[in-house]
Write a protein that binds this DNA or RNA. Structure first.
Lengths: 336, 336
DNA sequence: CTGAAAGCGCTTACAG
DNA sequence: CTGAAAGCGCTTACAG
């Protein structure tokens, strides 16, 4: 890596001007075949890789889309599990770790769509300063609803298009799942077979509000307040004085927490009590009993976010974009 | 987004030079408090976000690490599932989609580690031209073993440090799982309870080779050749003339494919035949029977890759880094 | 078809 | 503590 070669090096080696080198790379047809060959040879010989910074600065465009997540639960960053060939532990245990699947799928969808459109994807997680740094690096930005303070969003939104993922927004383009109708539909299904219902809300925010609103259209319940974590599901289930016919949770994580407690107490699901979630995460597909839920198309959320951004990039005058993606009630063992 | 403000705009508004603006942002202590305040006000007022391109060009460093994947199985990029509130389908089916979990976890680990070290992570997937483009955008690059032609790797490797993920390499830094000993250990476990063994290899490459080598140290078998896909596992299981005592597969996907076929034929696992995989993907944890396997720490692979890159960035003279991460045999229902 | 030159928006010695 | 100026490595009208 001794001092990466630049256009100047290539130009000199090929005996042409730097303009010609640039042309060979950007619009090859504009250059005589013979000249082009010489330049290409120089590129290969010198190991030339154009600097995206220089190019981006010149054309005022990065061709990168940014995706900002709240801090992933960090793996502490402790020592890595190195190994010598001697030691290979044998065991049966196996830590669960499905919490982040949601983000992973969004990310995958976003990456695929960005690739299709010729953009690279930059992901970053962390605090506010990370977000504004990211904003300086990309042509457009997708952020999860409720993870960034308004004033910061407003600040970076003056520089590049911002799309809010999940949850409505008055200010920015956004894409979200059809929360309320999804939960309403599921509530109808539940209400048809249950008289007493407990509803476990999540942390306050648009998702929680919309889902609860949808539920309220179709049924009524004793309401508990969780925070979307499996742990809060466990806590609430543990505190239940008497068993309702059904426990509906604002997301799958909490529903899984509820199942944890019910199972440990020998309460049968769905016979004694029905349980439902929302999201459609993989863990709910594989739990026992498997979890009835409302499936959100996470990967599509990511894809849609990229589409929204590229659309606005192509036409900044576009009116505010607001996409709602279809959801789907998925009946499984916990509430067939 | 009317023409993003630059240092010049901020400088003018604050009545200072652009050098001072830059200092306020990069080394605030070097500027008198009063001046600093004025600049910060200008930044807020104008909505200034520094251009990472310009900065990167000036300091010759991007602070971004790249992660290159072979093309994700693309979701075709068809129409998105939009919705009106009226239609919420209710159903029971549920497509499986665990194929990419492997990459997702690597990515998550890499992102977390990059964030810890103050780097952003750029991910890209696709063909060769995407890889070289990516190389122009980052300070260092992690690529999956066997996904990029040698000559290309050599080319970009002249510009930035490259680390190979999974699989050894003579040329570049690399990090991999302890393949051979892991499979050897598992083979011992299997051999203790099985006389006839079928071994299903994966697509040729370092992973396949090392795992098979490890297996061969501990047992012998009739060998079949798959390609690491679930489908190939099904194909091979279907073609089996007579049932061995155990079927060991070079990865979990193929083992799951084998389970698919056995179940459909009413063959009991592990009673009639034992089955094992390698990787420790989530789908194997949740399958029925759950899958005995060798667990690789995927997230740690990603983390380690970032560590290796940052180490080399910090000291280009470092001798070649070669990390091997510990694996762990996980006994589950398919071969307890 | 090709080249000279300006400009993209920062950072950083160097003076003062 | 602050400013003038050079330089980072490209692209792109503009001439020829």
């Amino acid at each position: 890596m001794a001092k990466a070669p630049t256009v100047y090096d290539v130009a000199e080696y090929a005996g042409v001007s730097i303009a010609t080198v640039s042309r060979v790379l950007r619009s090859p047809d504009a250059v005589k075949a013979e000249t082009r060959e010489r330049v290409l040879e120089a590129v290969a010989f010198l190991g030339y890789v154009p600097s995206a910074n220089a190019r981006g600065l010149a054309v005022r465009r990065t061709n990168v889309i940014g995706l900002f997540f709240p801090r992933h639960d960090d793996h502490e960053g402790g020592a890595l599990p190195f190994s010598t060939s001697a030691e290979v532990p044998v065991g049966t245990d196996d830590p669960e770790d499905d919490e982040n699947l949601y983000y992973d799928e969004v990310l995958r969808g976003a990456e695929a769509e960005a690739a299709r459109r010729g953009f690279a994807l930059m992901v970053a997680s962390g605090a506010d300063d990370v977000l504004s740094d990211l904003a300086g690096r990309v042509d457009g930005l997708a952020v999860l609803a409720g993870t960034v303070p308004e004033h910061l969003l407003a600040h970076v939104g003056r520089r590049i298009p911002v799309v809010i993922l999940g949850g409505r927004d008055d200010e920015f383009d956004h894409v979200s799942a059809n929360n309320a109708p999804g939960m309403r539909e599921l509530a109808r299904h539940v209400a048809a077979q249950a008289t007493t219902i407990a509803y476990v809300r999540g942390a306050p925010g648009p998702d929680d509000a919309e889902r609860f609103a949808g539920f309220s259209e179709a049924a009524s319940a004793t309401v508990y307040r969780g925070d979307f974590t499996r742990r809060s599901g466990r806590l609430i289930a543990s505190g239940l004085d008497e068993l309702p016919d059904a426990i509906m949770c604002a997301n799958d994580q909490m529903a899984l927490g509820v199942l944890d407690v019910l199972e440990s107490r020998g309460i049968r699901v769905p016979d004694d009590v029905r349980v439902t979630g929302f999201d459609g995460i993989a863990a709910g597909r594989h739990s026992r009993p498997s979890l009835t839920t409302v499936h959100q198309p996470m990967a599509e959320l990511g894809r849609a976010a990229v589409q929204v951004i590229t659309a606005r990039l192509a036409d900044p005058g576009l009116e505010k974009q607001s996409l709602t993606l279809a959801v789907r009630v998925v009946l499984r063992e916990s509430c067939p």
